[in-house]
Amino acid sequence: MSARTHMPVGMEAIQERGRLRAHKYLLLRRASQLLFLAVFLLGPWCGIWIVQGTLAGSLTLGVLPLTDPLILMQSAIAGHWPEWTALIGGVIVLAAYALIGGRVYCSWVCPINPVTDAANWVHRRLDLPKGWQPKRSTRLWVLATVLIVSGTTGVIAWELVNPITMLHRGLIFGAGFVWAMIIAIFVFDLFVARHGWCGHICPVGAFYGLIGAKGLLRVSAANRTACDDCMDCYAVCPENQVISPALKGKPGSTPLILSPDCTTCVRCIDVCAVDVFKFTHRFDDKVAAPTDPVPAPDPRAARPI
């Protein structure tokens, strides 16, 4: 391992592009998360009623119903066929995320994401061991369990513990002891399992991963020939198993990150000093030709640090 892997993650990108531009997508993402929270909070806090309700179910401008499709699915399995309003809302959400890419929800909307991102940031700073790393399929098992328990108990099971809707509802209607749950998730991600909650456990993420598996919005390692193996993208990526097939694929393989696990958080674009990654759609599988006809020099030799 070279000393360069011990440089702070993203340092080269900051030197290359400046602090602001090296955090462009992170800032955009935080803005998006805030925006989604703000439209829900404007009503109860400022009396401006654009959106009523919570992420579980809402009504925008008094006409557009939106419903969490996973909750509806549990409800149907638990034995209640929802009314049309909820069904239409669920179909709209389902269609939107199936089209865009499901886990965009995880990184651009979900209010738990800043919590686990913060835990991961501290985790990186403290250089802690990655801890318990259950298999990536764990969340699918959890999802199956949640659906089975909904069926056997007749209760929408995940809503008994779902920190996403609890935090969101807590901010809008009153939190109770939700903060304890949020601290628990933070500590879990910090000390027990790196990327533990969002990356391994959360069945909501698993669900959106499944419905958005063929989503249009994708990240492409189009300029992968320029990669200097600094590993910064692996360090920031919450699902870093998705990078290798695209970045390190054999010549001729697609540079698109097609794994449904990818949350499209695009931190990889931010931290890459040599602009390997770009935001694109799933049909854009062009690989940029090396700009220099001479093979790129070995980066380890090129930068004697």
């Binding site: 009523q52 309700g53 919570t54 579980a56 179910g57 809402s58 009504l59 419903t67 969490d68 909750i71 509806l72 409800s75 638990a78 034995g79 209640h80 929802p82 909820a86 909904s150 007749g154 209760v155 929408i156 809503e159 809707t165 509802r169 809008i172 209607f173």
Partner: peptide, 11 residues
């Protein structure tokens, strides 16, 4: 049945 139907949206 209520707990199988209520999505806890607060509307």
């Amino acid at each position: 049945e209520f707990l199988s139907a209520c999505i806890r949206c607060g509307l």
